[in-house]
Design a binder for these strands. Structure first.
Lengths: 125, 125
DNA sequence: GCAAATTAATGATTTATTCAAG
DNA sequence: CTTGAATAAATCATTAATTTGC
């Protein structure tokens, strides 16, 4: 499905180096161990590791194969986003009770709302 | 398209105001359309709509279901607050992930990340 | 069994929001 | 109001699975 994109030529030359050779792919190809470890960390609650964390994780994962900090960073980004996406698809549940305090609503009849009245100043419209 | 969950339609038909019987369950339950529209307005820059704006928005949103001015007002209040909270948490949690996202990635292989490392010492070996 | 073609998964880039600071 | 910072969302591009035909 690579229609006429032509916009991006990609400067990626695959000089990822470091790899033990293998297929010398252009993009990082995580090993089972690496994925397992990453998923474990994610499961532990790590969603957006700090730079330091990324460094540590990268170092750890290097034992199982070539990897860089950016790979770790991207992995968490993508994983979180895709997990979210999948969850969203499951949004079949009925009500979407949102964030609203019933506190005010209990007032029911709602008297004249002066709250937002004294603000005739600039409007963002 | 036509992703209507059709969950709406009832919910708040009439007896919202002037009740007095049930203590709870009478709070505004925004529909997808309403939320979408509100978020759109928020995205357009509206943070604290004036009374007139609230009125207009309310009128517009009434097409999709019962809603009152206070709901609109509170929605913006809560939405803004929530966004701020989230942003703050993020800021406090992560430091310079940005480092990976903008600069390094464009430079391919991750060089030594001293940017966010005030570490004046350099131990190696 | 294997290879080409197609589809699905996912790594890597780019873009758009959002709040804080000046 | 403009700029800076930092994601998250959307998108592109490549790899792995899977399918299909021989």
């Amino acid at each position: 499905m690579a229609d006429d994109k032509s916009t991006s030529s990609i400067v990626f030359d695959g000089s990822v180096t470091g790899g033990g050779g293998s297929t010398g792919g252009c993009r990082w190809n995580p090993t089972k161990e690496q994925i397992s470890l990453l998923e474990n960390l994610y499961s532990q609650g790590i969603r957006t590791p700090s730079a330091e964390q990324i460094q540590e994780i990268t170092t750890e994962l290097k034992v199982y194969g070539h990897i860089e900090g950016k790979n770790v960073f991207y992995w968490f980004q993508n994983h979180k986003a895709r997990q979210r996406q999948r969850q969203k698809q499951e949004q079949n549940h009925s009500n979407n009770i949102f964030y609203y305090n019933q506190f005010l609503l209990h007032h029911k009849s709602l008297p004249p709302p002066p709250l937002f009245a004294p603000a005739p100043r600039n409007n963002n419209g």
